[in-house]
């Protein structure tokens, strides 16, 4: 069974929330991620780092959830930054054009600096 582990942590000082994904993100497992993202946004967390370094697989359903929330996030002075995707995951993001919409960075510090600029 290909599962998805999701963990979140918020830095109170910077108000940046990191959502770490581990495993497989498909049309099944995305339902849980969707709820996590919607709950974070509802609670006013708009500066999000999505840590992808342990995500082994993503389908278009997984990509779609980020497109679905990015408008609300940016309208509230926030953004979503992808951190360290594996080559297989990066390739899907690239084919679907998300590399032009989202910042994809390799270092957590860079991501934090970017979000602090907003």
């Amino acid at each position: 069974m290909n599962t998805l582990h999701i963990s979140t942590s918020t830095d109170e000082e910077t108000a940046i929330t990191t959502v770490s994904l581990e495993g497989f993100l498909d049309a099944d497992t995305v339902l849980r991620l969707r709820k996590v993202l919607f709950d974070l946004i509802k609670e006013g967390h708009y500066k999000l780092i999505i840590d992808l370094k342990k995500l082994q697989y993503i389908s278009s359903a997984g990509v779609g959830v980020f497109i679905g929330v990015i408008k609300r996030v940016r309208e509230n002075s926030g953004d979503i930054i992808f951190l360290q995707p594996l080559p297989t995951v990066y390739r899907v993001l690239d084919i679907l054009g998300l590399t032009k919409i989202f910042k994809i960075l390799e270092q957590e510090k860079e991501a934090v600096d970017e979000l602090n600029k907003i």
Binding site: S59, S60, A61, V63, G64, V65, I67, G68, V69, I70, K71, R72, V92, I95, L96, G97, L98, K100, I101
Partner: peptide, 24 residues
Amino acid sequence: EPDPKRYMREEREDGWGVFLIKKL
């Protein structure tokens, strides 16, 4: 073909699958 900018405006999550299959 999916239009990422329009999908963002419409907060639309689906509509990518067929395009991705064609690319793969």
